[in-house]
């Protein structure tokens, strides 16, 4: 599959981590440049670096992290051809289907290849995955990608509408995973593909309740037992550490102090006004006017 060497070599796929929300695949091709808003980098400069290095941009402003690809990072970075499956679902499905080293598995459809890469990793060189895609352009892209990622020997990719034409193997696989709009149409075909001498498993993935209900009926009619339905999610936790909260005694003290100062100011202004008033009265007789107004603006609360 992908390189397990300590250092990056020409031709390797690396995952470039710019930020948590900006993760990109890169095929290392000395001679080329990698440009982003976090600076410019020569592919050639990556060769020989250990995986997991932090690399400064040429000129020095930004930096990137160059990571070893894993199916999980690839899922974050991959060019989406369809709605893709994410970690929570893939991990749960793998576990429920008991996919492990040496497993023989069917998936339909291939889609963006997210489940494909994960399963190719998990079954290892002794297992095999048959993957089916009905959309020709997606099929072609996936074929090239699998070859480039060195998993073509453990993944057999077929361009086929499995709901109409069924699968290419019989009595062979340990597990079937269907990610199709109408999985119920493929259930009988799947039954044929599953090996007969052991417990085998099928998982149908559907976003809508109506699809699930119809699939349950189809599975039940086809003789599958122990049918269960699961939903799994990852809830990101925003766990910023809470600063110690202020007790209200502090708020109370602040408010009292503010009021004391305000009252002092008011009294001062009243005294000042009275003083000016008296002075004016002494100087030029009685009168009220602009100064009164100023005072009013200063004191009204």
């Amino acid at each position: 599959m992908w390189s397990t060497a300590r250092t990056i070599a020409a031709g390797d796929l690396v995952i470039v981590w710019l930020t948590r929300d900006l993760v990109q695949p890169l095929y290392v091709a000395p001679g080329k440049d990698f440009n982003s808003k976090y600076g410019s980098y020569r592919h050639a400069d990556l060769v020989g670096l250990p995986y997991g290095s932090k690399v400064r941009a040429r000129g020095g402003r930004g930096f990137i992290h160059v990571l070893r690809p894993t199916p999980e990072l690839w899922t974050l970075a991959l060019p989406h051809r369809t709605q893709i499956l994410y970690l929570a679902d893939i991990a749960f499905i793998t576990s429920w289907l008991d996919i492990r080293s040496g497993s023989r598995v069917i998936e339909a459809g291939t889609g963006s290849g997210s489940f494909t890469h994960s399963t190719a990793r998990t079954i290892g060189p002794t297992g095999h995955l048959w993957s089916y895609e009905f959309h020709e352009a997606r099929f072609a892209k996936a074929r090239d990608e699998f070859a480039r990622h060195g998993i073509a020997d453990r993944v057999t990719l077929t361009h086929r509408n499995v709901c109409k034409e069924g699968f290419t193997v019989e009595d062979t696989v340990d597990a079937v995973f269907l990610d199709l709009p109408a999985p119920w149409d493929a259930v009988e075909h799947a039954k044929k593909a599953l090996r007969k001498d052991r417990v085998t498993r099928i998982c149908c993935f559907s976003p809508c309740m109506e699809q699930v209900l119809r699939t349950v009926s189809a599975l039940n009619e086809a003789g599958f037992t122990d049918i269960t339905m699961y939903e799994t999610l990852i809830r990101p936790q925003d766990v910023s550490v809470v600063p110690k909260l202020k007790p209200i005694s502090e708020v109370s003290a602040r408010l009292k102090e503010a009021e004391r100062r305000r009252e002092e100011k008011r009294q001062r202004q009243i005294r000042e006004a009275q003083r000016r008033k008296r002075k004016r009265a002494e100087e030029e007789g009685e009168g009220e006017g602009a100064i009164q107004k100023e005072e009013s603006e200063g004191v009204e609360v």
């Binding site: 209900l213 349950v216 049918i227 339905m229 699961y230 799994t232 999610l233 990852i234």
Partner: peptide, 22 residues
């Protein structure tokens, strides 16, 4: 790099015909 915290969340549904519920 990028330590992130998540909660795992799983729900099982009863799937008896006509009586599907979490």
């Amino acid at each position: 790099l990028a330590p992130a915290v998540t909660e795992v969340w799983l729900r099982r549904y009863q799937v008896l015909p006509g009586r599907t519920h979490p």
